[in-house]
Design a protein around this nucleic acid. Structure first.
Length: 264
DNA sequence: ATGACTAATCAAATTAGA
């Protein structure tokens, strides 16, 4: 059995205390982090090594973005896709070499897309859609058992948001984004592992804004984080969990971690 | 609809998240 986790950590250096707590309590074999907000040279390798996570693939950047995959299982970094087409650090791909050998694990941070869902007045929105189109062209070529996880910044289903009608024109839940994400899904036949286990229309969120006095009180969440698997690999999934409790820890990220377990 | 927040950079105010 192996387990893989994903978490948009919103600054890994600031949040090492809760990362350590999560690793001690949940002990995933692999953890994929997004928004590490640091260059690789300043990544807290020692703290991960001390907990047994001695294998790392860090694609960092100063101040913004950045992704990292840390693991107790030996891994080999195999790719850093430039789906943003501007050099931003938003992807790192690895293959597992120990248990789960042969699995490719893609860690991605899709751009948020700005405020206005119209590419003619908001270039960031167009950049987001173009990013997804490049991912789709890549997905058509995937021919190995692959898991793609991370912050997709899109909540596709009505049950992925606290209020579907109210969010239809809010970036992350607009029809054009949902349709673009659907094309990416179809390009490889990805299985939405999270939704296999917490099925629509059950409530499933992974992000709650910092701008709420009490995130739990009105529960205005969105499912922005995803774990998708190749069809054959998805058959090996035995469990999936959302760790909402982490949103209440000291100095939390606005995202919570997801964990998928495999019979591998 | 918006924002009551938070982080990095840089050292006061700006950019960004979503």
């Amino acid at each position: 059995m192996i387990s893989i986790a994903t978490w948009n950590i919103n600054s890994v250096r600031l949040r090492m205390p809760i990362v350590e707590r999560f690793l001690v309590e949940q002990a995933p074999d692999v953890l994929c982090l997004q928004e590490i907000k640091t260059v690789a040279e300043l990544f807290p390798y020692d703290a991960f090594n001390a907990l047994g996570y001695t294998h790392h693939a860090v694609h960092g950047q100063k101040g913004y973005h950045g992704v990292a995959t840390v693991s107790r299982i030996p891994l080999n970094e195999i790719s850093r896709h430039n789906w943003q087409d501007n050099g931003e650090a938003r992807h790192v791909g690895v293959e597992l070499l120990g248990p789960g050998k042969g699995m490719v694990l893609e860690n991605v941070y899709v751009p948020a897309g700005g405020d206005e869902p119209d590419r003619t007045i908001n270039p960031k929105f167009g950049q987001k859609l173009d990013f997804l189109e490049r991912m789709t062209r890549w997905a058509e070529t995937v021919d190995r058992p692959t898991m793609i996880v991370g912050d997709f910044n899109i909540a596709p289903l009505e049950s992925d948001v606290w209020n579907h009608k109210q969010l239809l024109k809010v970036v992350s839940h607009t029809p054009v984004e949902v349709e673009t994400l659907e094309r990416f899904k179809d390009a490889h036949g990805w299985i939405d592992v999270g939704r296999e286990h917490i099925r629509d229309p059950q409530r499933y969120y992974s992000w709650w804004s910092y701008r709420s006095k009490d995130w739990k009180e009105n529960d205005r969440g969105r499912r922005l984080d995803h774990m998708w698997a190749s069809p054959e690999l998805a058959k090996q999934v035995t469990g999936h969990s959302v760790h909402e409790a982490c949103r209440d820890w000291e100095k939390p990220s606005d995202h919570v971690p997801l964990v998928t377990e495999f019979d591998l």
